[in-house]
Computed example of a mutant assay.
Amino acid sequence: MTATEPTILATSGGHRVGDRTRVLFGPLVHHAVELARVEGRRPRVMYVGTAIGDAEHFASRMSEAARVAGFDLTPLHLFPMPNVEDVEGAVLEQDVVWVMGGSAANLLAVWRVHGLDAVFRRAWEAGVVLSGVSAGSLCWFQGGTTDSFGPELRALTDGLGYL
């Protein structure tokens, strides 16, 4: 089952240090899964680390956090090329898309080159819950402030504009 209406959970958190693992999903990730209304199976969560350059060590930590939470995690990597043959199909199979923080400006540029701006809109309209932290939160808006361009905050005015 998917969310009953297009849903975005824009956050400033989502994971924390675990007792026996490097990362655990916090209440905000669990809330995103609750919003997806998954019943009778393990929730499917896509982790998107574009904003930190698809850092493999962090994708590994998120996979471990998903295992502990009881979620099936699919990482979407775009560097050096998409790691799945059918990006749109993979996105649409998810209950939640969780986007990591980092550079919002770089994330948006790379997503647009790969057509993910349109793919994520279709997923959102289909009931996939879109969520994320920092850059993974800002990206869904028309714009906001970011340090993507340097240490001084500047305006980002070309967000995806879903909100």
Rank of each mutant, 00 (worst) to 15 (best):
T4N: 11
E5T: 13
T7L: 01
I8L: 08
I8Y: 02
T11R: 03
G13T: 12
R16P: 00
V17P: 10
G18R: 10
D19Q: 15
D19H: 12
D19C: 08
T21I: 11
G26K: 11
G26I: 10
P27G: 14
H31R: 15
E34A: 11
R41C: 02
P43V: 03
P43E: 10
R44D: 03
I52S: 13
G53I: 11
D54A: 06
A55L: 15
H57Y: 15
H57M: 13
F58R: 14
A59L: 10
A59M: 04
R67M: 08
G70S: 13
L73R: 03
F79S: 14
V87S: 09
V91D: 11
L92M: 15
L92R: 13
Q94R: 15
Q94V: 08
D95R: 05
M100V: 11
G101K: 06
G102M: 05
L108C: 03
V110K: 04
W111C: 02
R112M: 03
V113D: 10
G115P: 06
G115C: 06
D117N: 11
D117R: 09
D117Q: 07
A118W: 01
E125D: 14
V128H: 12
V133D: 08
S134C: 12
G136P: 04
L138Q: 01
L138V: 06
Q142D: 15
G143F: 05
T145F: 09
T146G: 05
S148D: 05
S148N: 03
S148Q: 02
F149H: 08
F149Q: 04
E152C: 08
R154P: 00
G159T: 13
G161R: 09
G161C: 05
Y162G: 07
Y162L: 15
